[in-house]
Amino acid sequence: MNATIALYLAQDGIINGAIYALLGVTLVLVFAVTRVIFVPQGEFVAWGALTLAALDAGSVPGTAWLLVVMGIAATVLDTLRQSKTITLHAIGGMVVKDIALPVLLLLAVQAIAPGKPALWISVLLTLALIIPMGPLVYRLAFQPLADATVLTLFIAAIGVHFALIGLGLVFFGAEGFRTTPFIAETFRVGVLAIKGQSLAVLGVTAMLLAGLYLFFERTMLGKALRATAVNRLGARLVGIPVRSTGRIAFALAAAIGALSGMLIGSLTTIYYDSGFLIGLKGFVAAIAAGLASYPLTVMAALGVGLLEAFSAFFASAFKEVIVFSIIIPLLIWRSLKAPHSDEEEE
């Protein structure tokens, strides 16, 4: 191995690490606010890339239909669950927000897609399709379990992952796709060729992380989310509606997942089930940071990316084995550090 290869691997590792950082940070956020270990985050990554790829190709992505289906399901289930207390007004609100809007979006996509829209329009459409799915997943799966243990929520998250991966197969098929890069040019710096898309990944990641920082430090809504994370009961007692903070956290998760997918979609081929492993690597980083610290998560994510890049070079067949085995000592370390708790109690 020479310096050029090392630099190339490092570039690769940092780019992937940046994506893992975004996902890891979101996982920490969702866990803190809702106590859900959101394994299905990876599916949003795959769907982001595949939706963009479909729009690129001038076809209507399956997610446009899926959003309508999810909206109908959420409206029906929420109405059934609160059948005694719900008002007609509230049902009407859901019909408009969760069914009519997605239908309009579907019609818009059907009108726009065949003309192969410009990249920025496709990106916005993709975000418009994926972001609402976050809160919908929260309402369908997790909100009724709000009082359950972390463990139960985790099992539910695995169930959601299973369901979404099957839906991904239905809507996108087993074929893999690549998306158009945001920046197609390649730059040369000495011996190193730097893909423009790599710069896009780093730039967007840095902007998103900065944006998240400002959101949590400067806005009342961001502080309310943090407050919910620090002390859920305290948050309820000052009147913060913890359900809507949960939905906001899930919307953020979907947004960041979809963006990550669109960013890496041009660097690697994405299949309907690619998101799972990508998301899990974000997890390795989040866990290394104890599911608590954002800066540590970012650092750990870069470490995961580098580890993956270099092990791909030295022992490509065992890349995944290495990346997922590293989590075990991390978990032990975290378990030992965690204060003795009665969490396993029912």
Partner: peptide, 12 residues
């Protein structure tokens, strides 16, 4: 492994 770290470990 404690709490939710255990199932995560089994996935890994």
């Amino acid at each position: 492994l404690s709490g939710h770290f255990l199932p995560l470990g089994t996935i890994a």
